[in-house]
């Protein structure tokens, strides 16, 4: 049997050679650049001039984008774009196998269905980890650059501390978990529907639409709040709000429902994918 590491290596090479992967990367990088460029430009405008910012607005933006808070802002913005990119990537990795028919080629080469799924998902989750680290590097670099450009200051005393580094590591882990959950869900939807478009549409719909629906639900009192907690959006958002500069103070039950929710969706996505893939007819309906 072909070693699992070979399957993962082949999947990594297929993903890295695919133009879509780099287009997604460029889009995430470009959005990050745009945001920081416009914020830096706004801060560089002279204050209290016609069309400029008031001193208060200027101070608010400065606090948002410059150390120490700036890093958290960057992680959240870049992590958000990167999650969307990972959803598209994961749906593409599974959906395109069906539109190109290459899933047949792999299965006929003796890769079992379980291993086909496992190696792709392992590769995607590893990429999500890498992307979380890259997001942190980008957020750090961008925050540093804005500080230098706007204030000519490195703010090294803000980030060259054990506390900041530990926080940054935790933020990377939480961002990774959030991306991994959505990646798994997108992979399962694309696999079950045989379709990139359905994988992207359904998962992005749940990711973006869910946030809107659940913020309305939350407003509907305790029942609404607990109902919202049945969905992955709530748990991911609760997890990510720990990345904020003023994190909510969670109690044991909060950690419990967040963990239970995320574990449930992870397990459900994997189980649904494996079970439905095992039964699947891997030829297209013809005339």
């Amino acid at each position: 049997m072909t070693p699992f590491s070979t399957l993962v290596r082949v999947d990594r090479s297929r993903i890295l050679r695919r133009p879509m992967t780099w287009i997604l990367g460029i889009i995430v990088g470009g959005m990050t650049g745009l945001i920081y460029m416009s914020l830096a430009l706004v801060l560089l405008l002279p204050e209290d001039t016609e069309g400029g910012l008031s001193a208060q607005e200027s101070a608010d933006i400065r606090e948002l984008v410059i150390f120490p808070d700036g890093f958290s802002f960057g992680m959240s913005a870049i992590g958000g774009f990167a999650t969307i990119a990972m959803i598209i990537l994961a749906a593409g990795v599974f959906g395109s196998e069906f539109s190109w028919g290459t899933v047949r080629t792999s299965l006929m080469a003796g890769v079992s269905r379980d291993r086909f799924y496992a190696s792709k998902v392992t590769t995607l989750v590893a990429i999500a980890g890498l992307v979380a680290i890259i997001a942190a590097v980008l957020a750090f670099g961008a925050t540093l650059t804005v500080g230098l450009v706007v204030d000519q200051d490195l703010y090294a005393d803000e980030w060259l501390t054990g506390g900041f580094i530990l926080d940054a590591l935790l933020m990377i882990v939480r961002t990774f978990i959030a991306m991994a959950v959505w990646t798994l869900i997108a992979a399962t939807v694309a696999l079950v529907t045989h379709s990139l478009a359905a994988g992207v549409g359904v998962t992005l719909g749940a990711y973006i639409g869910g946030d809107i629906v659940f913020s309305l639900l939350r407003a509907a009192g305790d029942i609404g709040r607990w109902a919202a907690r049945l969905f992955p959006n709530e748990a991911v958002n609760a997890l990510l709000s720990m990345n904020n500069t003023d994190p909510p103070s969670y109690v044991a039950t909060d950690y419990l429902w967040i963990t239970a929710n995320l574990l449930f969706y992870t397990a459900a996505a994997i189980a649904i994918a494996i079970i439905s893939f095992r039964r699947m007819d891997i030829i297209a309906a013809s005339g």
Partner: peptide, 17 residues
């Protein structure tokens, strides 16, 4: 499968490779 080589329907490969 180790003893069999097959094309089913159209030959299917990655278009970008």
């Amino acid at each position: 499968l180790t003893r069999t080589g097959a094309i089913v329907e159209q030959p299917a490969f990655y278009p970008y490779l």
